[in-house]
Simulated assay, not measured.
Amino acid sequence: MAPATDTTPSHRTGERPANTYVGRFAPSPTGPLHRGSLVAALISFLDARTHQGIWRVRIEDLDPPREQPGAAASILRTLDAHALYWDGDVLYQSTRRAAHAEAIATLQQMGWAYACGCTRREIAAAGNMGREGPIYPGTCRHGLPPGRRPRALRVRTHNDPIHFHDRCHGLVSQCLGQEIGDFIIRRADGLTAYQLAVVVDDAFQGITHVVRGSDLLDSTTRQIHLQHLLGLPTPVYLHHALVLGHSGDKLSKQTHAPAVNTATPLANLVQAMAFLGLPRPENWQDATPTSLLNHALAHWSPPGAPA
């Protein structure tokens, strides 16, 4: 349920009957939507609608220090301006803190989560580097060393390979113990970590299919590990190509990618469609956002089987 001050546009498609496909778009309110995030929303929307599925929107507002005032409302207005209408109410992750805490308590009770007193600098100094940065060396795995105070909470990993089939990338496998190490589920500042929150909330919303950027591909095995520990279902995953800037880097709010101009929704959608290799219709300037989306749906061939 949105906060009382929410300015969410009121015209929605409404709930649909029970379906085998439930997808979602889950932006963080750290700034307005940029061209890359509009493409991500469009791919997620097209995949859901192509399979007659439900498409939900979740605002991942779990990191107040990084959030911008008004960003959540701006994101929703931008989706609305481009006729990317979602099903049901917007879920604000900040309303789910009790559920996240309950999942963390469950992991602690099962012996899978433990307190860690290490700093980032200490972990980096251990010198065990992986593809994504320093690998946690397990310093606090068997209890806090003398003189340490608890900071973050970590979840235990193992060296059995975790496999999943990605609809774009095919078979993906990772040994978390060797390549990542025990990872954080509650940060030193007390905030729930992304990996835990997304797993709990995907299950809560009944998400069956996750469509998101390939920058999150390496997060998936950690999420599957948590799903297994908590007895939660694993969705079908599709990690799509990213929109890159002139420097070859991913467009992001952190690199100050410009906001999508809501006054030019037709041009924005045509540009996003071109990135996906979809043809633009003749006389598109005279179209509506909805008719452009219908054109995109008619020409969209989702990668891989939805399962």
Rank of each mutant, 00 (worst) to 15 (best):
L226Q: 05
Q223G: 05
F275W: 13
D286L: 12
N268Y: 10
N283M: 11
K253V: 01
E282W: 09
T221E: 15
K250D: 03
N261C: 10
L238T: 14
K253C: 00
N268K: 07
N283D: 15
G245Y: 07
G231P: 07
A274E: 15
E282V: 10
M273Y: 11
T255Q: 05
L232P: 00
T221G: 10
H240N: 12
G245F: 10
S219N: 14
T255V: 07
L232F: 10
R212K: 14
L269G: 00
F275K: 03
A272E: 01
S252W: 10
Q254I: 02
M273S: 11
P235I: 07
G245D: 15
Y237Q: 07
V243A: 10
G277E: 09
A241V: 07
A241R: 07
N283R: 13
L216Y: 13
T290M: 12
S219Y: 01
L242Y: 12
L217F: 15
H239T: 05
L238F: 14
P235G: 08
L251A: 04
L251C: 02
H209C: 07
H225D: 07
H246G: 02
V210P: 00
A274I: 06
P265Y: 02
T208K: 06
A287G: 02
V210A: 09
L278W: 14
L266W: 11
P233M: 02
H256I: 01
D215F: 13
L244N: 05
A259Q: 04
H239L: 04
H225R: 13
P279L: 03
P289H: 15
R222D: 07
R222Q: 14
R222W: 03
R212W: 14
H256E: 06
H240A: 10
V260A: 01
Q254R: 12
T221D: 13
V270W: 00
Y237S: 06
D286Q: 15
K250H: 09
V260S: 00
Q223A: 08
L238N: 13
Q223H: 09
Q271I: 01
T290W: 14
T220A: 13
H225F: 04
D286G: 03
G277D: 11
L230M: 08
S247A: 09
L238S: 14
Q285A: 13
G248C: 05
L269E: 01
T221C: 15
P233G: 03
K253E: 00
Q223N: 09
N283I: 03
T220Q: 10
G245H: 06
T264H: 14
L242Q: 08
Q254K: 06
Q254E: 03
R280P: 00
G213T: 07
T234S: 14
A259E: 14
T264I: 11
G213K: 12
V270R: 09
N283W: 10
L276F: 12
T264V: 12
F275G: 00
H209K: 04
Q227V: 04
A287V: 04
